[in-house]
Nucleic acid binder design. Structure first.
Lengths: 223, 223
DNA sequence: CGAGAGACCGGATCGATGGTCTAGTAAGTG
DNA sequence: CACTTACTAGACCATCGATCCGGTCTCTCG
């Protein structure tokens, strides 16, 4: 009786704590090692308990992913209105800020890139997408949907590619290509040693320039 | 003795048969239901046998994915040389052809979009990437790496997004956004009813226009 | 104050999975 | 005919997501 350990005080496990711990676990050990059991253990509880707060493991991933989107700072609307009023290319700045922050957040949590193949309907993701739409509409683009679509596709794709490759740089992939330089000469010459940030900016520049051109032509469509 | 069933004739299980069956299984039932056991069963063998031909399940996925890339027709070099010689924008056509075929192949096998987060080092993928590089270099772009990077990111991202969303159109996502139209007005108005092909082409147009502009400015870099 | 309701917790367990161990059998080669 | 190589399968292991069932804590209402 006396030796019986005092029951631990009630944990009041909350969704927020679960999500925070899931992100920490993912950051530390990667997506392959996120287990309901492990997550529960880190929260000092049983795996079953998690299922009271969450319906499936996918819920945890959805929540963790939206938490990452929550880290993206949304440029202030005031700034946006100032810069886009005149119909110039001032809209480039807020778009670059949003997209850049978006990319940075995903890169800060590389696991997020590997679970991007799910509907992004969390409040944080929606808020950022809404801002993107509004900015592109305010900029006077006649095809804001296509523009938003292109931009988000570009970020997602970039992050997936970077995460995929930069983690494997230590493995023999460098030598692999060099050995086959006869079959893939252009690849072998340009393929490796990525300066990720610069390359990303350059490509984003292509996109924005193309949109700007479409905007100036008024129709919103490229010829 | 007589009743003992005749031993099945030797199957000569080959990698090709495994990969073909894996693709068929993935096409038919999705990535979640590809199991070594199921795959073995469809090949009328034991799951262990597969491991003689393949080291892990990931190998199967790598092979299946590269098989998808193999479906992409590579535009002929002759055509490419003809159209890119003069330094005009003739390079747009082969690039559009490659990228379009790339996208079509991935969409034909929607599961492929969800396993794009792995190094694409299969011979088929490499061959297409090599062609893309060569085309962009021949076109006179000073930053062919950034261009190739942008284009592949764009295809990958587009396919992931389309696959993610079009499968879920029947679910209540349409109503979900409409209910929240006050919080996400722009999204609710433009978000749904995607004309995927047109939107994709429009965005590809932005990219190509931006690259063309960079090419004309000679530096290969946008200001 | 006290009892019931509902929020919360966890051990045991289920079915399935990726992968390995061990023990083979068919076919080609000397 | 021996013997190596290519190939096959059953039993098995650890682990996973998820559920069952039996609890325990806390708050509310009489």
């Amino acid at each position: 009786m006396w030796s019986r350990p005092r029951k631990a005080p009630r944990q009041t496990l909350t969704l927020e704590r679960i999500v925070a711990e899931a992100v920490a676990l993912l950051d530390g050990e990667g997506v392959g090692r996120l287990t309901m059991r492990r997550l529960a253990e880190r929260l000092d509880t049983g795996s079953t308990t998690l299922y009271w707060h969450v319906r499936t493991k996918d819920d945890v991933l959805d929540l963790a992913l939206d938490a990452v989107f929550g880290e993206v700072r949304v440029p202030s609307r005031a700034t946006m209105d100032d810069t886009t009023d005149g119909g110039g290319d001032g809209w480039h700045a807020p778009v670059r800020a949003l997209i850049g922050g978006w990319r940075a957040a995903l890169l800060r949590h590389p696991w997020s890139a590997t679970i991007l193949d799910r509907p992004l309907m969390g409040p944080n993701a929606l808020e950022r997408t809404e801002f993107l739409y509004e900015t592109l509409i305010a900029a006077g683009l006649a095809a804001p949907k296509a523009a938003a679509y292109s931009l988000s596709n570009y970020v997602m794709g970039s992050v997936v590619m970077q995460v995929t490759w930069q983690d494997r740089e230590e493995e023999g992939t460098e030598g692999f290509l060099r050995e086959r330089a006869d079959r893939y000469p252009a690849l072998a010459e340009h393929g490796l040693d990525h300066e990720w940030d610069a390359t990303f900016d350059e490509g984003l520049g292509y996109l924005l320039a193309g949109m700007e051109q479409a905007r100036r032509q008024g129709t919103g469509r490229l010829p």
